[in-house]
Design a protein around this nucleic acid. Structure first.
Length: 222
DNA sequence: GACCAGGCACATC
DNA sequence: GATGTGCATGGT
């Protein structure tokens, strides 16, 4: 089977199992951005608590979060872990948003997304995955998000090298899919759910929807 | 009580 | 350029 068929086959198997996941779990683009920063190396459960705190204190809007004191933000986002670095990262993003777009998220996304991606990557605390999550899930831009689950699943199934770089994996996948924002959105969500639900509990892919897809000889969990 | 979670920056070699 | 380390909470 060609790798192109495999990329689509994986998508169909996962969608058949999980259905339509409707990501990102947030209401407004600004919330998505904040969530994307808070969820760095952190479970979403913990992030939810932090988001709720911010929302309750009316700090989930650009102006208020920008003005809020460091100590206050630290206290509010504490449940999401790394609260000092993440407060710094949130502040850095907000400085960028206000300096460049007068605090207007819609204006930010009015920019050409390739240019915006480059700018986001220059913001301290925003790396490739966070930038791409922001572009796809907050801005509806056609950017495929690569995370640890994506890397694990595709390399275990022999489609990519385990040591492949971020943009290499991204190209591999997008070269084999139509350019389609809802598809990119759903596919990444499916991969994350698969990783969470099966990669550890079912390392041999017995009940995993991908159990029928070829794995590498080294086997083990994906 | 380990081990892990939807990363990233920075130091060191 | 590759590899190692700090950052921190809450669930399993």
């Amino acid at each position: 089977m060609s790798s192109k068929k495999n990329v689509l086959a994986i998508y169909r198997l996962l969608e058949g199992h999980f259905g339509d996941l409707q990501w990102w779990p947030a209401e407004k683009p600004f919330e998505v951005i904040i969530g994307a920063i808070l969820t760095q190396n952190t479970s979403w459960k913990n992030v939810e608590k932090a988001i709720q705190n911010l929302k309750r204190e009316k700090c989930l809007v650009p102006e208020n979060l920008y003005r809020a004191k460091k100590e206050r933000v630290e206290a509010l986002i504490k449940p999401s872990g790394y609260y000092r670095v993440k407060t710094r990262r949130l502040k850095k993003f907000l400085e960028f948003l206000f300096d460049e777009y007068d605090g207007c998220v819609a204006d930010m996304f009015g920019e050409d997304w390739r240019t915006l991606r480059e700018k986001l990557l220059k913001v301290n605390g925003i790396g490739e995955e966070t930038a791409d999550s922001i572009l796809l899930y907050a801005g509806q831009k056609p950017v495929f998000v690569i995370d640890q689950y994506t890397r694990r699943i595709f390399s275990r199934h022999g489609l990519i090298d385990g040591k492949a770089g971020y943009e290499e994996i991204q190209r591999f996948i997008t070269d084999r899919l139509p350019v389609d924002v809802p598809l990119y959105n759903q596919y990444h969500a499916l991969l994350v759910n698969t990783g969470k639900q099966f990669c550890k509990k079912d390392p041999l892919c017995i009940t995993c929807p991908l159990g029928r897809i070829r794995r590498t000889r080294t086997g083990g969990s994906h």
